[in-house]
């Protein structure tokens, strides 16, 4: 049993790595700062550690998918991130890709059961 858990842990790590990016991009059509994103994603069932999210935000910014701005008006200065034009485009393409993956995989998973039933 614990063996299965170990496998699952590793596989989930790989699986999450890509999906977190989609999750982050999806929430940034409005400007957000890092920690508000963590809570926001968490409430919607996507758990992200700040230690993963903050470096990711910077990487996406460096790649040009996000724009950022410091807001110094509040009690403490915060760096807000927002989808750039490229980012919006990339996000839309990514969503389409994601949907097609989901459909294909759903098919595969469903059909596996279906074939067994329909074999005779």
């Amino acid at each position: 049993m614990s063996d299965a858990h170990e496998h699952i842990d590793k596989l989930m790590q790989e699986l999450r790595r890509g999906t977190i990016t989609i999750g982050v991009l999806s929430q940034l059509s409005e400007p957000q700062y890092g920690y508000s994103l963590v809570t926001m994603l968490g409430k919607k069932g996507v758990q992200v550690e700040p230690g993963t999210l903050y470096p990711l935000l910077r990487r996406l910014e460096k790649q040009g998918l996000l724009d950022s701005k410091w807001d110094t008006n509040e009690s403490r200065p915060r760096k807000y991130y927002l989808l750039s034009e490229t980012g919006k485009e990339v996000f839309n393409l990514l969503v389409a890709e994601w949907r097609s993956i989901v459909t294909s995989l759903e098919n595969l998973i469903e059909n596996e059961g279906g074939e067994k039933d329909g074999a005779d």
Partner: peptide, 20 residues
Amino acid sequence: EQREDIAEELRGLIEDMLEE
């Protein structure tokens, strides 16, 4: 060149987490 920016952002994060 990244140190200052990251330091400030990180401080903000820690403050937010503490406050919560």
